[in-house]
Computed example of a mutant assay.
Amino acid sequence: MVSQVRRQPLAAQAADLLLTRIRNGEWPLGHRLPGETTLAAQLGVGRSTLREAIRELAGKGVLDSRQGAGVFVTALDVTEDWDVVLRRATIASVIEARIAIEAEAAALAAQRRTPADLRAIRRALAAREAHGEPIADHVDADMAFHRAVIVAAHNDVLTQLFDSFLPRLRVAMIDMLQIRPAPSEPADHDAHIRLTDAIAHRNPSAAAEFSRKHLTALKDAFT
């Protein structure tokens, strides 16, 4: 049986044309698109097809149709699924994102941490030191420490971002340590102690710097 090539629906083609024009900068972020009649004529489709194309892009977060006001550009491209992005990302890219998140989180933790937060960080630090083997347990204890610091920042967005990295990061860390153990585990643990002390003493600049230096060294170990 010979398979037939399916033609892309007209509305999908119109949506692709609109998205291309948006990507090319024809309509900047926040800009209102031309009226239905004008836009349909430009694309060579009927108004019902245009509306369907707009609905498709609205569903992807690119356009927003506002009653009585028109259709506005709300994103300059389609956002890929976060899990897909992380699966494709190199571990160095993930760690670079961690540096951006965790250095700021460490500074905020130094400012905002409560006594309960500090106790949680210190418990996680002690657990990290106790779990040297097996490697998976050590990685889990290390991730728990870093998460405790982020939780102490009291910013739910930062916590959610870190949690989204965890599965990708955990696998990569286990793989790396199996192939290439840390050059000096005591020195690595001392870096975590210094970070904890900076948070305990409410020193945001030191906390951010210790976090950044530690994670930069981790990235260098991968490259």
Rank of each mutant, 00 (worst) to 15 (best):
A109D: 09
L33V: 02
P115N: 06
S48H: 11
A53H: 01
D16F: 12
S3M: 14
T20V: 13
R47N: 02
M173L: 11
A172W: 10
H146C: 02
E26C: 13
L118A: 05
N203D: 15
R21L: 11
L195C: 04
A58L: 05
T37F: 06
T49N: 06
F162T: 03
L76W: 02
A53P: 08
N24T: 05
S164I: 06
V149F: 01
N155C: 10
I22G: 08
R122A: 03
L10G: 03
H146P: 03
A207R: 10
F145V: 04
L10F: 00
P204E: 12
A53M: 07
I121G: 02
D163T: 11
S164F: 12
H31C: 13
I91R: 05
H189Q: 13
L33M: 01
L29Y: 13
L17D: 07
K60V: 00
D175V: 15
S184Q: 03
L50S: 05
A14I: 03
Q13E: 06
A40G: 00
H146Y: 07
E26M: 15
R7V: 06
I54A: 01
L118P: 01
P115T: 02
L86N: 09
E104S: 14
A103G: 15
A187Q: 13
A153M: 05
F162P: 01
E96S: 08
A208W: 09
V171Y: 15
V2R: 13
L57A: 05
L63Q: 04
E26K: 14
